[in-house]
Simulated assay, not measured.
Amino acid sequence: MAERVDLPSPAATLPDRIADELTAFLTQRAGLLAGISPDLGLLAQAARTAVLTGGKRLRPTFAYWGWRSVQPEAAAGEAQLIRAAAGLELLHACALVHDDVMDSSDIRRGQPAAHVRFDRFHREQGWPGSGQAFGAATAILLGDLLLSWSEELFTSAIGCLPPERARATIAEFDVMRTELVAGQFLDMLAQARGAFDPDEALRVVEFKTSKYTVQRPLLLGAIAAGGSPEVLEILSAYGLRIGEAFQLRDDLLGVFGDPTETGKPAGDDLREGKRTLLVALAHQAGNPSQRALLQAGIGDPALTADGVARLHEVLQETGAHERVELRIVERATEAARCLSTGLLQPAAAQALLELAQAAAHRTF
């Protein structure tokens, strides 16, 4: 098992600071919803569950270290940056809620997904009509609400910074949200086409994860801090590489990971038909029999445990598993080299180096 990484202070307190911002904001907005109608308490509680239950807080963390790449600890504006970074977590919660509806995923972070909770509530109330339809529709509304709140929290906090830096940071946030939707669409398109294309898989990784999870949050923080073009170039290169490593590790965990650590049933990614680099490489290198197994099994919602085990064998026998592992190491190594210029604040460079190792070798 990979060694857990303890990041330097003040990163140890960062999740608590982000959680405090999110809790305060959601409590305030729950009051607003309650003033409209008591029935909206269901939506307010679902928002709290979606945002505050579990999660790695990666995007706020990278936004913070983007800031700290330029500014020393406790510099003026840091509190506003952390509040804005919390807004990224609301955006991510929106993406997860919608993603679970689109993928028909029942589990999120080891708990029932939002649309499943709403479906169950409908059934418990004994209401007429389809509980499943109610669950999906309400989850879409929940995601929309979280999206709206993310912009509200982000812009209100960033607006407290010097105007030029605030405008540039908000522009970066706009690009981030566009790329998130683009990445999600490209992912759905890849699944709809049903092809096994390594280049297409890497394009999805770039826009759905590398940019959204690492590069843009880093740049948001650094731009808010007044970072130079040279610093932004370093963080951009680092972000793309470690973002890819992170997603490729996620792809491996989605197939081979321990469900007690990942919070997802074993083989779920195979049943959902995700066209990852892992399965694309296996199809590319496989013999006719192995390709037939991949084509029949990937995307089969009724895939049994034995079927998952057979696909595991194919992914390993074709060398796809090993090739993805090697690519993860290569990208993490390249990301680490990006940090060796001496242009970043030392504490940030060290934290980003450790985050690179954690992303590459995590088990959950």
Rank of each mutant, 00 (worst) to 15 (best):
E3A: 11
E3I: 08
A12L: 07
A12R: 14
T13D: 15
T13R: 12
P15M: 10
P15W: 04
D16M: 08
I18Y: 03
I18Q: 05
T23I: 01
A34D: 15
G35C: 07
I36P: 03
S37T: 07
P38D: 14
D39M: 10
L43P: 02
A46V: 02
A46E: 15
R48S: 13
T49V: 10
T53G: 02
T53V: 14
G54I: 00
K56G: 13
K56R: 13
T61Q: 09
A63T: 04
E73K: 07
E78I: 08
A79P: 04
A84L: 09
A85L: 09
E89Y: 00
E89N: 08
C94Q: 14
C94A: 13
D99Y: 05
D99V: 12
D99N: 08
V101F: 01
M102F: 11
D103V: 11
D106H: 08
R117T: 12
R120A: 13
R123V: 14
E124H: 13
G129L: 05
Q132F: 05
A133L: 13
L142D: 09
G143L: 06
G143T: 04
L146N: 08
E152Q: 14
L153G: 02
F154S: 09
F154Y: 13
T155M: 11
T155I: 10
C160M: 14
T169W: 11
I170T: 13
E172G: 05
V175K: 08
T178S: 08
A182C: 09
L186G: 12
R193C: 04
R193G: 11
A195V: 12
A195T: 15
D197T: 04
D197N: 13
A201C: 09
A201D: 12
F207M: 14
K208E: 12
K208R: 05
T209P: 01
T213G: 11
V214N: 06
Q215P: 03
I223H: 09
A224T: 04
A225N: 12
G226N: 12
V231S: 06
E233S: 15
L235M: 07
A237D: 15
Y238G: 11
L240S: 06
I242F: 08
F246I: 00
L252N: 08
L253Y: 00
V255L: 07
G257V: 10
G257E: 03
T260L: 14
E261W: 00
K264S: 09
A266E: 15
G267I: 09
G273H: 06
L277D: 14
V279E: 05
A282S: 08
H283K: 06
G286S: 10
R291V: 03
A292K: 13
L293E: 09
L294H: 05
A296I: 01
G297K: 09
G299P: 07
A309M: 05
H312V: 01
H321P: 11
R323G: 09
R327W: 01
I328H: 02
V329M: 03
E330M: 02
T333A: 14
E334G: 04
A335Y: 07
S340R: 12
G342T: 12
Q350V: 07
Q350P: 00
L355G: 03
A359I: 01
